[in-house]
Amino acid sequence: MNEDELLRAVGRLPRSIEPPRDLWPGIEPRLQRRRHWYWIPLAVAAVLALVVIARSIQTQPAWDVTMLAGRPLLGNTRLAASGRLRVGDWLQTDDSSRALIAIGHIGQVEVKPGTRLQLVAARRDDHRLALARGGIDATVDAMPRLFFVDTPAGTAIDLGCAYTLETDSLGNGRLHVTRGEVEFETGPRSSRVLLGAIIQTRPAIGPGIPYVEDAPAPLARALVAFDFENGGARAARTILALARAQDAMSLWHLLQRVDPTLRAMVYDRLAALVPPPAGVTRSRAIALDSRALEGYWTKIHNIQFRRIVLRGVREIDPRTGTTRRHE
């Protein structure tokens, strides 16, 4: 057979060949099954979508709010007894109202009269309020750096503590720590505020140098002048002249903020009031070596805690943190 004969034979092949048996019975059930299967994933997806939406509504971050006095305004609604503060919601109190906010499961915030604040974040690792004006008393019992309050002058970062934070309508603020420690931060500038200490804050400048609550008024005024009124070297010298051993926390901050030419003077005054711990040298401290500064801070921190916690129980030497012996 040559190729032409082959191709002619191919041309005569039937185009259609009936199968030896009816194949439809094997096809029809698969069509029905497939049609069902076509809808099952869609139905499952729809149910899942509904579940996810319902759960997201239920679990949408929100904190409980309880009215303490008056009729605080939660969003656009007057709070009768309690409500839920959701992310983005504002809570406002007038002159005669107060409210209590549960900070997730880590603490609470009492909202003072004349306050306006917003819930910014309610995540496990970021519990955040924005305080536009007014005052709050915050109490947190959690790991450090889980609770934050944004203000016009910066952010108060909880380090495991209780504090009062106030902000006026111009954004000027004041932070008073009553337990633990708080860091107040604005960009690169930060202040560490220990138990029993206060800072002033200003918008666009940030936190001032902290001072203990029993600091002499002239010292507090000198610190304000240095921080917010361009007091410069003159204010710094006034601070050094007025500082006591109890004010070591202020001098530790001042050391890092004065003109470098004044650092030695600040260090010497600080060392004279509270001797540096072992391992902290003058040169390293003046060079703002972080390890030296941290070592010094630990000592100042411990003295301040003993001084406040044992107040009325024992007299603590503010130079060393040890109990004073009376002759």
Partner: peptide
């Protein structure tokens, strides 16, 4: 449709 085309498809 199956009846019409099954022969061609099977072939």
């Amino acid at each position: 449709l199956y009846r019409q085309h099954v022969g061609r498809v099977y072939a």
